[in-house]
């Protein structure tokens, strides 16, 4: 598929030649690592006051990924901008005139941004883990411990999927403001509320971020969800698939 490689190269040029790529990904790294370090340091201080049961459930790996909850918002901005840039600038008409095969166009754009998000996710995940463990002192986990490497790769995948979800939603909505206006409060507030109120907890755990973040957990807790780490990630992937299919259909049918 010569055409596909051409379009992939073109999309790579596009993504590397705008500033928003650099600052959103850098922000995701800084925010995640800084917050993870802070929360890890606080946890270390509080460890002594914990009940025996809390100590049993203490998960140093998960704590060192705590910053992802905030850092993912920068990744969402990255995903939204990659797609909405085309619409908000009018570039979409130039792009589709150059590549009228719209599915090839969208797939290439998402592929390039997804690979970049995965690389960034790996960097963030490893940096966040090691920085967090450094704060935890004697309570720290090691990469050789059972489940830790899975959690590290898993959180990179989680961040990748969050970015893909944002791209799919934006492909449907087109507008950066509308997309961010829906995605930001959803992941920052609504998902947390639904997940923590007992009445909606059972529904909340099937939301993409709640299901997906199960992969960062190493120590099993009592109130286990009815899915494992990979099951949770699969639920999240299903959400992403729905968002991307919706975005693809919107692009296919609508006027540019």
């Amino acid at each position: 598929m010569a055409v596909a490689t051409q379009v992939l190269r073109s999309e790579w040029t596009k993504i590397r030649s705008v500033q928003s790529t650099g600052w959103t990904l850098a922000l995701a790294l800084v925010v995640t690592v800084a917050l993870s370090m802070l929360l890890s340091a606080l946890s270390k201080k509080e460890y002594g006051d914990m009940s025996p049961r809390e100590k049993l459930e203490f998960d140093p790996t998960l704590i060192s990924f705590a910053g992802i909850g905030l850092g993912q918002l920068a990744l969402i901005v990255f995903g939204v901008l990659v797609v909405s840039n085309e619409y908000s600038t009018g570039m979409i008409r130039t792009s589709l005139a150059a590549v009228p095969q719209r599915m090839t166009f969208l797939a290439s754009k998402i592929t390039v941004a997804t690979l970049l998000a995965f690389l960034a996710g790996l960097v963030i995940s490893f940096a966040s883990f090691y920085a967090g463990q450094a704060m935890l002192g004697e309570h720290k986990a090691s990469i050789g411990d059972s489940g830790v490497l899975r959690a590290m790769i898993g959180s990179a995948l989680y961040m990748t999927l969050i970015t893909m979800f944002a791209m799919g939603v934006t492909a449907m909505l087109r507008s950066p403001m509308v997309s961010l206006g829906i995605l930001m409060p959803f992941f920052f507030l609504i998902s947390n509320i639904l997940g923590n109120v007992p009445a909606t907890e059972k529904v909340g755990r099937y939301l993409p971020d709640q299901a997906g973040s199960r992969i960062m957990q190493v120590v099993r807790t009592d109130d286990d969800a009815p899915y494992g780490p990979w099951g949770g990630l699969a639920i999240m992937a299903a959400w992403v698939a729905v968002a991307l299919i919706g975005g693809a259909l919107a692009l296919k049918k609508r006027d540019a």
């Binding site: 073109s10 040029t13 705008v18 600038t89 009018g90 570039m91 150059a98």
Partner: peptide, 15 residues
């Protein structure tokens, strides 16, 4: 119909 943050060269390059 172009991204204002992209240089003229890169705009044409991606096309």
């Amino acid at each position: 119909a172009m991204h204002g943050g992209r240089s003229a060269y890169n705009h044409l390059l991606c096309l």
